[in-house]
């Protein structure tokens, strides 16, 4: 008993789950969608993913080094941002665009607002919207030589539905359609989603309510057509967005009721943007707007303390 004992306030034990575990679980959950994208669109898309992740991690390192802050690149959050951004890119995007997006996501959206946990928008989505507005031509070109889609024939199912054309539902579920690298295969995305649910990384509350609201919205306002409704759910970035982006801890409400309201809000916004917006897709903008409402939703939905429900 010569050594000094540690003294601290209780509790003296900690759960095994760390921020790092959670981040890498999200990254692992995106692997099926990434692999499908690479297999379908070709090896170049692997390069896009690697370059985007590298841009995110490097810009975080350089910023923190320059600002004399602790280096936090090993926590996995920059990797997740990079993967989400990359999977939101068209398959033949010039590399400099996602790289620029990665730098924007980390420096402008995340670090300028105080780093991990402080960003008011999902960094990857904010960067995607920045790129969509700035480089609309590149970002909306879903042609893929390997898949045999050019810029003319390669209309995404959402664009085709907008134009009143029929779409192939089975191809959408497997992913044999034009689109961004990671959003095309519903099956691959759901494998990742189940992984996150089983590992209790996310709760099903936001994604299910979000997707459900979109379904109800497009059914009511899209002509009471069941096939059309299912196609809308499987098309575009809804599944990807609902499970991987709307569930982002930092930018979604923590209260149960708040999560329900948030899911409904995202669903309604997505429905409006898709049915009547300027572009056939609206998931990214819906989530970004939802992010901005998050603090207000949270404040309005604080739970009543145990034993004080009546007051």
């Amino acid at each position: 008993m010569n050594n000094l004992l540690h003294v601290s306030s209780s509790p003296h034990v900690r759960d095994k789950v760390t921020t790092k575990n959670l981040m890498f679980d999200v990254a692992i959950a995106m692997i099926p969608a990434s692999l499908y994208g690479i297999w379908q669109f070709g090896i170049y898309t692997a390069l896009v993913i690697v370059a985007t992740v590298a841009a995110c991690v490097l810009s975080e390192y350089v910023w923190e080094k320059g600002m004399h802050k602790p280096i936090t690149i090993t926590d996995g959050s920059a990797v997740v941002t990079g993967m989400i951004l990359a999977l939101n890119m068209p398959p033949e995007i010039p590399l400099w665009i996602p790289v620029l997006g990665g730098v924007f996501a980390i420096i402008v959206v995340k670090q300028l607002f105080g780093g991990l946990g402080q960003n008011f928008m999902n960094p990857a989505l904010a960067a995607r919207c920045f790129l969509l507005i700035s480089f609309a031509g590149f970002m909306n070109n879903f042609s893929s030589a390997k898949l045999g889609f050019d810029s003319v024939s390669g209309a995404t199912p959402l664009a085709a539905m907008r134009a009143g054309n029929e779409v192939d539902l089975a191809a959408m579920i497997v992913g044999k359609i034009p689109g961004t690298i990671g959003e095309v295969s519903v099956i691959a995305l759901l494998i990742g989603a189940v992984y996150m649910l089983v590992r209790k990384v996310i709760s099903p509350r936001i994604p299910l309510i979000y997707i459900g609201t979109v379904a109800v919205f497009v059914f009511l306002f899209g002509g009471f057509d069941l096939t059309y409704t299912i196609s809308q759910i499987c098309a575009g970035g809804l599944i990807f967005g609902a499970f991987f982006m709307a569930t982002d801890y930092v930018t979604s409400p923590i209260t149960k009721k708040g999560q329900i309201i948030y899911g409904i809000l995202l669903g309604v916004l997505t429905g409006i943007f898709r049915l009547w917006g300027g572009s056939p897709e609206g998931v990214s903008y819906a989530i970004i707007l939802g992010n901005l409402f998050m603090p207000m939703i949270e404040k309005m939905t604080l739970p009543k303390a145990f034993g004080k429900e009546g007051k």
Binding site: T19, L22, L116, G117, Y249, V250, P303
Partner: peptide
């Protein structure tokens, strides 16, 4: 490390 607002505490 920084809070990521995961909501587990809630």
């Amino acid at each position: 490390t920084p809070c990521i607002r995961c909501g587990r505490c809630v």
